[in-house]
């Protein structure tokens, strides 16, 4: 589904990603762990098409199509979804209206008309119940004044609404209490199917107890230095990252 080859990316002439190779197949869950500042969020932004980062080398192919020239919205239309580590606050636009704008933009890109109002309402109700989101919440301005956990839950609500092919969750578990974590995991697991894939970025193996990954990667200084099964997450939890830093590698 997603093939990343020798990806290098810079911001303001500083190289952040230094040759990433990553292949995710439909039906799989991958996790990326790694120290602060190693480039995990950068990788997710680059996949989602953030223009501030410059891809200097390599390629990103999604379902056989080179993404390099595609705008963020075009990538979204193809089924890529990014749950932000720091969701942006947009005062003046309600969660509901934002979701309508988003869903209808997706439909338009597929040549479909706007979703009928009753269908939209039904979908919103179903997904907000799945994520145990209070209805009052939906009429509030997007992310404005939301607690850290509420923002994250709202991201997963959006994911559930859009039903993407590839969901990249950038530290969606950070700041969640244990109940919220279970709710979010339920939302993610509901999305999982033979046709979808999930890329989890996390610092805690705790999340991986609920969403079980097929592959765990370790990212250090802009490179994936090690990949393994889910037991790798446990090892990282115990040993930290130092043993994986290039200068310590044997």
């Amino acid at each position: 589904m997603l093939k990343i080859k020798d990806l290098h990316a810079t911001i303001e002439d500083k190289e952040i990603l230094k040759g990433i190779n990553l292949e995710i197949n439909a039906g799989e869950v991958h996790a990326i762990m790694g120290p602060n500042g190693s480039g995990k969020s950068t990788l997710s932004s680059v996949i989602a098409g953030k223009e501030e980062f410059e891809m200097t080398q390599g390629e990103i192919v999604f379902e056989g199509e080179d993404l390099t020239e595609l705008d963020p919205e075009e990538r979204a239309h193809r089924g890529i979804f990014l749950s932000f580590q720091y969701p942006v606050e947009i005062p003046g636009v309600s969660v509901t209206n934002f979701m309508k704008a988003s869903i209808n933009a997706h439909r338009k890109s597929q040549g479909q008309d706007d979703m009928p109002a009753n269908e939209m309402l039904k979908l919103i109700r179903e997904k907000s119940e799945l994520l145990e989101i209070d209805r009052k919440f939906l009429s509030r301005s997007l992310n404005q004044g939301f607690s850290g956990g509420e923002k994250k839950r709202n991201e997963i609500f959006q994911m559930a609404m859009l039903n993407p092919k590839l969901a990249i969750l950038d530290e969606t578990d950070s700041g969640l209490d244990i109940d919220a974590l279970k709710v979010v995991a339920k939302g993610v697991n509901k999305l999982r199917s033979a046709d979808n894939a999930v890329l989890l970025i996390t610092h805690y193996q705790r999340l991986l107890d609920y969403i079980i990954p097929d592959v765990v990667h370790v990212m250090v200084d802009g490179q994936i230095v090690k990949s393994g099964g889910k037991e790798l997450a446990h090892e990282l939890e115990e040993r930290g990252y130092d043993w994986l830093r290039p200068e310590n590698a044997i």
Binding site: G49, K50, S102
Partner: peptide
Amino acid sequence: FYLRSRGIPLKEAKALLMYA
């Protein structure tokens, strides 16, 4: 970028922010 990553095209995303 947040709006566009949700599939809202640049022009509409700008309009939405201006409306907001």
